[in-house]
Amino acid sequence: MPFLLSLAPLVLVLLVLVNLGTIWRRLPARWALVAGALGGVGGSVLYVGLVFQQRSSTAAIGFLFTPWVFAVAAGSAAAWGFGLHQLVHTRQALRGGPRPVAVWAVAVGFLLASTYYTGRDARSVAGFLRITRAPADARVLEDAYRGALARRDYLQLAAVAAHPGTPPAILLAMARSDDPGMHARRRGLVTLFGRDSLAVVREVLRNPNAPAEAVAALAASPSDEVLYDVAASAHATEAILRDLARRRDGSLVRWGLALNPRTPPDILERLAKDADDATTRHLAGNPGTPLPILRGLGASGSALARAAVARNPGIDAALMARLAGDAEDDVRLALALNRGATREVLERLARDENARVRRHAADGLRRKRTP
């Protein structure tokens, strides 16, 4: 069924091509057809370009929607072209009676509305690109911030939040904002220009200039996605981490706590007792996870968890020796890549049956011999 649905835009295009002669005889349809073709091709090219610049590992799935993007863009552009024809021939339409007048009103209304919203989005994208390319000038970025804030333009606000030159005072003001739009995932086609759809305040937390007070301010965010970043932040104090562990039990917050080396050991122990697969992997890779927990995870049935333990620089020689004999190649490979692996373990792995394990173990031994 999904395959058949994906063919619908192609079928629509074929129907238009089959009836092209009939359509072309009518002037309004000619305007719509030309505009639709240009809009469909232009929209598809733009969409594919935006998919290419996405950071997500699943971004390639977006290519599957290209036919639908073409259909939507072509349909919208065709309606716009028809509306433009009606606007150009207003006098003729108004003389034609009630029905032509009604068609004119609907077509011109769509033309004006679509032009307005497209222009608004184009302005937003142009401002976003201008901000991302702006120099690290505090005054320029402050002006951009105030203008975007007045328009509630979250795409541009995200650009300001991510800019390496944004002053800490502006970042803190963003973090303290109670505007729900600042904490919500950004949506809409314009978000594709930003490489991600992170909430504005999440961009704040990722900015190296963000002051520690921003983490404290965002600890009260209503969004679990934001709280994930707070829980994983190096600036999160023990009080903040304990408060999050007490107040919120969502999976995202648990993952953030499990990732953070500053999370108190008793919280990590509590997470280990009732952990899902993702939390387990985060705990296994956390250098701050207590060794008894790592030993337990190193003996778990999950190869992914054991591999994460093997990569953890905080494991001791006894645990390394045990993991060096693991039946899974990926676990032994992770151990060979561990910069903290002992010489004895690396020498054992250098004789491993897996060529990749042997190669990386040999590299590790060479590093240890190099003064």
Rank of each mutant, 00 (worst) to 15 (best):
residue 4 L to E: 14
residue 4 L to R: 14
residue 4 L to C: 03
residue 5 L to T: 10
residue 5 L to Y: 12
residue 5 L to V: 09
residue 6 S to C: 02
residue 7 L to P: 05
residue 7 L to Q: 13
residue 7 L to G: 01
residue 7 L to I: 14
residue 7 L to C: 14
residue 7 L to E: 06
residue 7 L to N: 05
residue 8 A to N: 01
residue 8 A to M: 14
residue 8 A to Y: 07
residue 8 A to Q: 06
residue 8 A to H: 01
residue 9 P to T: 11
residue 9 P to R: 04
residue 9 P to Q: 05
residue 10 L to N: 04
residue 10 L to M: 10
residue 11 V to C: 02
residue 12 L to F: 14
residue 12 L to P: 00
residue 12 L to R: 05
residue 12 L to E: 05
residue 12 L to C: 09
residue 13 V to F: 08
residue 14 L to V: 15
residue 14 L to A: 15
residue 15 L to I: 12
residue 15 L to E: 00
residue 15 L to N: 02
residue 17 L to W: 13
residue 17 L to A: 14
residue 18 V to D: 00
residue 18 V to S: 02
residue 19 N to S: 13
residue 19 N to C: 09
residue 19 N to K: 09
residue 19 N to F: 12
residue 20 L to Q: 07
residue 20 L to R: 15
residue 20 L to C: 09
residue 20 L to G: 07
residue 20 L to M: 09
residue 20 L to H: 10
residue 21 G to E: 02
residue 21 G to F: 06
residue 22 T to Y: 06
residue 22 T to P: 01
residue 23 I to M: 11
residue 23 I to V: 13
residue 23 I to R: 12
residue 23 I to D: 03
residue 23 I to E: 03
residue 24 W to C: 05
residue 24 W to A: 14
residue 24 W to Y: 11
residue 24 W to P: 02
residue 24 W to K: 08
residue 25 R to S: 08
residue 25 R to N: 04
residue 25 R to W: 05
residue 25 R to F: 02
residue 26 R to L: 11
residue 26 R to W: 13
residue 27 L to G: 00
residue 27 L to W: 04
residue 27 L to V: 14
residue 27 L to M: 09
residue 28 P to Q: 11
residue 28 P to M: 05
residue 29 A to S: 15
residue 29 A to R: 11
residue 29 A to T: 09
residue 29 A to C: 09
residue 30 R to A: 00
residue 30 R to P: 02
residue 31 W to H: 12
residue 32 A to T: 04
residue 32 A to E: 00
residue 32 A to F: 00
residue 32 A to P: 03
residue 33 L to Q: 03
residue 33 L to V: 04
residue 33 L to C: 03
residue 33 L to I: 07
residue 34 V to S: 01
residue 34 V to R: 02
residue 35 A to D: 00
residue 35 A to H: 01
residue 35 A to I: 05
residue 35 A to C: 06
residue 36 G to N: 06
residue 36 G to H: 07
residue 36 G to V: 08
residue 36 G to D: 01
residue 36 G to C: 04
residue 36 G to Q: 06
